[in-house]
Design a protein around this nucleic acid. Sequence first.
RNA 1: GGCGCGUUGGUCAAUCGGCUAAGACGCCUCCCUUUCACGGAGGAAUGACGGGUUCGACUCCCGUACGUGCUACCA
Length: 505
Amino acid sequence: MNKVRVRFAPSPTGGLHLGGMRTVLYNYLFAKKYGGDFILRIEDTDQTRFVEGAEAYIFDCLDWCGMTPDESTRKEGAYGPYRQSERKASYYQYAKQLVDSGYAYYAFDTQEDLERMRHEYKTAENPLPMYDSRLRMNMRNSLSLSADEVAELLAKDTPYVIRIKMPENETVTFTDMIRGEISFDTNLVDDKVLLKADGMPTYHLAVVADDYSMKITHAFRGEEWLPSAPVHLLLWRYLGWEASMPQWAHLPLILKPDGNGKLSKRDGDRLGFPVFAMNWRDPRTGELTEGFKERGFLPEAFVNMLALLGWNSGTEQELFSLEELTQVFSIERIHKGGAKFDFEKAKWFNHQYIMKKADDELAVWMRPYIRNGNEFDDAYLSKVASLIKERCHLLSEFWSQGHFFFETPSETELSVIADKWTDGKKAFFENWISSFDGIQEWAHDALENGFNETMAAAGLKKGDVLLPLRIMLVGGKYGPGVFDIAALIGKDETKKRILNTLARL
RNA sequence: GGCGCGUUGGUCAAUCGGCUAAGACGCCUCCCUUUCACGGAGGAAUGACGGGUUCGACUCCCGUACGUGCUACCA
């Protein structure tokens, strides 16, 4: 295969959700696999939806996942400009070209005209009438009006849109890389607006013009675009570019975990999981939406989870680095059907990556989650990480799983041991503490040996005193081995916690 | 309503006509560990339905049902 060029064009309407991120990922993997260019394009031609700060946010998300676009799409580049708003002039030119060649026309209908049409032609079997070949001669456009009338309207700067003139009785067929051959009857597709009254293009015109001028060879987009694909194909044809039309791949949808429908931001809020890659604060509403990053996901886990949502390698392997994915990824193995998002499985991926990560690296990721202001050095944090990483599914669980390494537990589940508490046990702990000064090396083995000796001398069993010790050190029935904890928090702190609890029993 | 796309356990999914239908998540049991977790060993749980084609169909074809998407001067 020759050099490929893929593009991802997020609409900066705020947030970058799972579906969008997955489309980027597949674009990226495909481009990398075949040594092509990974280009980002910003679709900011819809001023009513464009959100301040969204562009920078998109780049942040890509950086976090390790998918920074090849070229500096933030500045200049071989295929720039990358913002649609900066390409405005050429869109008009192409739309005009289509009108001149008879494939498109001016439409002067107002919003009210359109509403009236939808109302007037509404019938039981056609509840949603379209602006199409059957109806367009009843509307106000350059097909129904005389040349003089049209010239006059244009001369008076009457607002107009440019619509594609869908042919009658034709079948448009194209090949989707995932789904194979797909056909549409042109009579059933409406005359889509190409250029809006404000002079900005709609997605339909923009995507074709941009893909052409950016020399895109392969285009990935969501399945929701399938119904408008015939419009796009016709535009490529009418503009005389059909030979350079990219190959399309329409990706399956990511669905809600419960019920039906595609996954939305609302579902995340409702079910308690993120749907955006990173935190997004809408500047217009001030509303903050949590991201996977902030929820405690490692980027490699997020990427891995995302890749497997709609694709699999065909082997039993489930854990892939981004690098591995670029090797094994293949369009043939992308599924046709939508997948319900499963947050439990997403957490499992993260858990795997947390366990796999080196302790010192993990320490860096976990540091922000230390809730009290105390300072701890990297070596200490590293040791904590090694002890608790296998019980954290999210980085944010670091604190709930290991807070006792950083503070004396404030809440102690005394009730767990209070019922079976005896003077003999109390004497045992006092004896054990008094032996601390004789311990040469304050480490796991020495502590356990000393504990066992004192225990045997007191005629007690592990079952009698191990749990109490845990409650004293941790505060509850959880955490790593008690001697590991004692070894790490140190002699003084261990003694302090035992004494504290003894005083309360 | 029309059109498009889809349909293997609760979820993600393998299978490209030979199936006693992989594997993973989740769930359950046991072992390990006198906590929790990790790890190990098991278990329950699947081809939407009806017709064809075929020696043989989860796999191919047709219908039906169901789901989902589109049907905006939104993408």
